[in-house]
Design a protein around this nucleic acid. Structure first.
Length: 562
RNA sequence: CGGGGCGUAGCGCAGUUUGGCUAGCGCGCCUGCCUUGGGAGCAGGAGGCCGGAGGUUCAAAUCCUCUCGCCCCGACCA
């Protein structure tokens, strides 16, 4: 260890907020090079390799074949699928000396499809499942949480090519199952959730979430069945309108009261009685969006509902032009722009919304009587307490970090890139694709989030950088040194990954570092036990200690590590 | 990109409001002594273009302008 590069830090670097980020820096696993870009130090790299090997084993078992695609990719391919522009600012773009355009691959669908179209001609060659473990580059708006959202990160991505939907279904299921095994072998508890496919595309997709408060994603899950979904995707049920007599419209003065929160307090009426009217710009054209006052708009669902490529909240000037009133007093009655109505708003009888007039709201607004909806759709964000779309049970929310995602892509890439094959009837067909990613570097952080205590990391044996650390209390002591050297040699030769802390440090320092780094097993060699020919074995996670004769250490370890 | 904050020794920070002598503290690092079961003690030491550029001033870590970087919240995203 005196010759190892394991620089631990006593103090928490100011930049790190998440536990996993702090421990990765302190335990000497990573060092930052720029925002969202990290160097892996020897211990960090060992963990990474452990995770990669688990992934490789499971991918190979599931019919995957490893390849290595280029990081630098020509722009032409991305133009063919339209993603050169669609991916937008998030892509690192560069030009060579002749001004040919390239990007640093944020993902590899284009290039792998272009590969397969060269060589695959016949249904007899299918299915094909190719994967790689490779760096990805995404110019994130905001890199954060250390390695969890980096601009350079390591991903395993597998692409499946099948002849038909049934084949895709099989590939998808194989990957789904492999992912469950991979994460469980890494010691991670994950929860697969239905998700939105974002810039990758396709219809069916699941994300594998590591649950925890630090997670960036919000998910909903059903208490009564196994339904779980990212809120980006989670559907909400249509609610039947209340049955009540319709009252005539009535203006109510609301001076300087415009937010739902203020209105609730000012009028002493529950938020669910309000119809929130928001003005958006969909491809730069204003639309009004109506939603129940106690709900939030899910912009992803909204964007799909209005089928636009750019969606943003309207600026105050636009709102004033459209509603003839300052921000905060928009309502559906009399609006001359398309009105998109969420289920939650459509069901409100005698609702309250803005009057399109400064300092005024309108009461007793009713669907179809007072405004004609352009569309009635599900565009709200699911929330705790909602009924489950599957079984009607009650939904709960939780936070999660996404460590993997599986997509059914279909022909989104094979058609524009003309990746085709001949079926047994000699008919030309596009390949049916799926893609399956695991954030490898992020997985490492997620494991720490789930396996740590106040002293440091508690690595699961399967991914620990080393399984065992030998700590002689005083390595200068002749007897201790002999025992330590003997055990180190014995264990190493028997295939147990072992570190010998031969540093000239006081025992406390060595213990602290061992706990911080999180070796699953520590063997302590001290004068007290050594007098009797014994050493102490400590299990990091449980802190359980046993005293064993030197001769039995090896056997004990085999038991503890299995 | 909007809002907030921070750049001073490897790490954590003080000093900046109110300009003023050689820029400090803790940890870490080096040497020696001592110590050796949970981040010891004593003594000595090395280490700074005070993020960068320009300006104001007799004088700038400190004031002004510009710039670069980093962190947090949001929008966006895996």
């Amino acid at each position: 260890m005196t010759e190892s590069y394991i620089p631990t830090l006593r103090e928490v670097p100011a930049e790190a907020e998440l536990i996993s980020h702090q421990y990765m820096l302190r335990a000497g696993l990573i060092r930052k090079s720029a925002a969202g870009i990290y160097t892996y130090l020897p211990l960090g790299l060992r963990v990474l390799h452990k995770i990669m090997n688990i992934i490789r084993e499971e991918m190979n078992k599931a019919g995957g074949q490893e390849i290595l695609l280029p990081i630098m990719q020509p722009a032409e391919l991305w133009h063919e699928t339209g993603r050169w522009d669609d991916y937008g600012e998030e892509m690192f773009k560069l030009a060579d000396r002749n001004q040919r355009q390239f990007c640093l691959g944020p993902t590899h669908e284009e290039i792998v499809t272009a590969l397969v179209r060269i060589d695959v001609r016949s249904y007899k060659q299918l299915p094909i499942r190719l994967y790689q473990i490779q760096n990805k580059y995404r110019d994130e708006i905001r890199p954060r949480f250390g390695v969890i959202r980096g601009r350079e990160f390591i991903m395993k991505d597998l692409y499946s090519f099948d002849r038909d939907e049934a084949g895709l279904e099989k590939s998808y299921q194989l990957m789904y199952d492999a992912y469950s095994r991979i994460f469980s072998r890494c010691g991670l508890q994950t929860c697969p959730v239905e998700a939105d496919s974002g810039a990758i595309g396709g219809d069916t997709t699941h994300e594998f979430m590591v649950l925890g408060d630090a997670g960036e994603a919000l998910i909903v899950y059903c208490q009564d069945c196994d339904y779980a979904a990212n809120v980006e995707q989670a559907e909400c049920l249509y609610q039947k309108p209340e049955k009540a007599a319709l009252h005539p419209l009535k203006e109510i003065p609301t001076p300087n009261v415009s937010t739902i929160e203020e209105l609730t307090a000012y009028l002493d009426i529950s938020p669910s009685r309000f119809i929130k009217t928001m003005i958006f710009l969909a491809d730069n054209k204003p639309i009004a969006v109506l939603i129940g006052g106690n709900h939030k708009i899910n912009e992803i669902k909204l964007q799909k509902a209005v089928n636009c490529t750019k969606l943003e909240l309207a600026d105050p000037a636009t709102i004033e032009t459209v509603t003839n009133a300052p921000v905060g007093y928009a309502g559906p009655v009399g609006l001359q722009i398309p009105i998109i109505v969420d289920y939650s708003a459509a069901g409100i009888v005698n609702g309250i919304s803005g009057a399109n007039k400064e300092d005024t709201h309108l009461a007793n607004i009713n669907f179809e009587r007072d405004y004609i909806p352009t569309k009635v759709v599900d565009i709200r964000e699911a929330q705790a307490g909602d009924p489950c779309v599957r079984c009607g049970g009650t939904l709960q929310t939780a936070r999660g970090t996404e460590v993997g995602q599986v997509f059914k892509l279909g022909t989104k890439y094979s058609i524009p890139l003309e990746a085709k094959f001949l079926d047994e009837n000699g008919k030309e067909k596009p390949l049916i694709m799926g893609c399956y990613g695991i954030g490898v570097s992020r997985t490492m952080a997620a494991i720490i989030e789930q396996h740590h205590d106040e002293d440091g990391i508690c690595w699961p044996v399967s991914v620990a950088p080393y399984q065992t650390v030998i700590v002689p209390v005083n390595y200068e002591d002749e007897k201790q040194r002999q025992t330590a050297d003997h055990l180190y040699k014995l264990l190493t030769e028997s295939g147990i990954e072992t570190v010998l802390d031969d540093r000239k440090e006081r025992a406390g320092v060595k213990f602290k570092d061992a706990d911080l780094i999180g070796y699953p097993i520590r063997i302590t060699i001290g004068p007290r036990q050594l007098k009797e020919g014994n050493v102490e074995i400590t299990v990091r996670e449980s802190k359980e200690q046993i005293v064993v004769p030197v001769a039995e250490v090896h056997n004990q370890l085999l038991t503890l590590l299995s």
